[in-house]
């Protein structure tokens, strides 16, 4: 049976999203497709699969991504869905614990990729928001609502960026002592 759940996770909450998807899988609801804030599940054995999320460097259909996704498939990680550059994987738990990264340098690299996305989105929203707010005084007051939304989204993204940055510093600190 298919179950669709609508749920919002911000980009900096991808680890929380992963935890939630794994909880669903543990309950016997396996992710089979993703869309914008929309998750589709199918019944499976409780605890049959582990779920991981990755923000790719390129779009999933880019040749570099295709090579990478095929390699992952060869190791048992099956792609169940994607949204923009975010890709969702599942792997049978019987094949061992499912992780995408096993050392700090690659974890840091992935975090930096998400941070870069947040920085671009955040700055863009702040800029567009400021522009709209300026225009609303000069031209059309309806733009003030859009401008305010832009500013709020921009602030959200920057707060998310700061959170991930803190996490990244912790990983970097660890790296000074351990491999």
């Amino acid at each position: 049976m298919r179950t669709t759940i609508k749920k919002v996770f911000w980009a900096w909450e991808f680890e929380k999203e992963e935890v939630w998807l794994n909880e669903m899988a543990a309950k016997g609801l396996c992710l089979v497709s993703v869309g914008f804030c929309r998750y589709e599940f199918e019944d499976c054995q409780p605890g049959e699969y582990g779920i991981r999320i990755e923000l790719l460097e390129h779009k999933p259909n880019h040749p570099e991504s295709v090579k990478y996704l095929e390699f992952l498939e060869g190791t048992g990680a099956e792609q169940v869905g994607s949204w923009m550059k975010w890709v969702y994987f599942r792997k049978k738990k019987a094949d061992g614990a499912f992780e995408l990264f096993s050392d700090n340098p690659t974890r840091i690299k992935h975090l930096s990729r998400v941070m870069h996305l947040l920085l671009v989105l955040g700055l863009l929203n702040l800029l567009v928001g400021a522009y709209n707010l300026v225009l609303c005084f000069a031209w059309d007051s309806a733009l003030s609502a859009i401008g305010t939304v832009n500013i709020i989204l921009g602030i959200f993204a920057m707060v998310g960026y700061a959170k991930l940055r803190k996490k990244r510093s912790r990983l970097k600190e660890e790296q000074q002592l351990f491999e």
Binding site: F71, L72, G74, T75, G96, L100, F101, S102
Partner: peptide
């Protein structure tokens, strides 16, 4: 050896201590 073979071999060699994740291995 192919990718998955390396993951299994490394885990066996290290007595289960070193577990390479696929993304890290690819890099």
């Amino acid at each position: 050896m192919h990718g998955y073979g390396i993951m299994q071999n490394v885990e066996a060699l290290s007595g289960g201590r070193v577990r390479l994740a696929a993304g890290t291995l690819y890099g």
